[in-house]
Computed example of a mutant assay.
Amino acid sequence: MTDAAILAELRRLREAVDLLVRYIGPRLTREQVCLRLDVSRNTLTRRLELGQYPRPGKDGKWLLSEIMAWEARH
């Protein structure tokens, strides 16, 4: 197996895990998101208002997978 094939397989595996986590994954509270992103509650609120962070769900919690995806992009 070539390096490119291995990387492609790992990418597909990560996408599959992300999909599973999205459907059955844990949800984070505001406090947990603040700890994970190392920001205060006020900073989180301000950045949410500016559209800089992912929005919580209707239950006021964030999917861990969405936070992880955001972290990977930034």
Rank of each mutant, 00 (worst) to 15 (best):
P54H: 09
H74E: 14
T43W: 05
A16N: 04
K58I: 11
E71L: 13
S65K: 06
I67Y: 03
P26R: 10
L48K: 02
T2L: 09
V21S: 11
L64C: 06
L28T: 03
W62T: 01
L19T: 14
T43G: 00
R12C: 08
E66N: 09
S40G: 14
H74D: 07
P56L: 09
L64R: 06
R73W: 00
L48P: 01
C34N: 10
R55A: 12
H74S: 11
E31A: 14
C34E: 14
D59G: 07
K61C: 12
L48A: 08
E9W: 02
A8F: 02
R36W: 07
D18A: 15
P54I: 04
E71F: 00
G25Q: 07
L28A: 05
E9A: 14
D18G: 06
T29K: 04
I6W: 00
R22W: 03
G51V: 08
W70H: 12
Q32P: 02
L28S: 02
L28W: 03
T43V: 14
E71N: 01
M68A: 14
I24S: 12
K61A: 07
H74V: 14
L35F: 07
M1C: 06
E49P: 00
G57L: 15
I24V: 11
R41Q: 14
V39N: 08
Y53D: 05
E66C: 04
R36Q: 13
P56Y: 06
L50V: 04
S65Y: 01
L63T: 02
T43P: 00
R73F: 00
G57A: 14
R47I: 03
E15L: 15
E66Y: 02
C34P: 05
G57Y: 01
Q52D: 10
R27F: 02
A72M: 10
L13Y: 00
R11C: 08
R46I: 10
A5I: 09
L20F: 07
E15R: 12
A16T: 09
L10Q: 13
G51R: 06
K58Q: 13
R27P: 00
R22A: 15
W70V: 05
A16H: 05
L28K: 03
T45P: 00
R12L: 13
G60F: 05
P54W: 06
D3L: 10
I67Q: 07
Y23C: 04
T2C: 08
E49A: 12
R55I: 08
R11I: 09
E31V: 08
R46L: 11
A72E: 15
M1Y: 02
E71I: 13
E71K: 09
W70G: 05
R27Q: 11
P54C: 07
E49H: 04
R14D: 13
L10F: 03
I67F: 03
L10N: 09
M68W: 00
I67H: 04
A4H: 04
S40A: 12
L44D: 05
G25H: 04
M68L: 15
G25I: 13
N42I: 15
D59Y: 01
V21W: 00
K58L: 15
G60Y: 03
H74F: 02
P56W: 07
I24N: 12
R55D: 11
P26S: 10
W70D: 07
D59R: 08
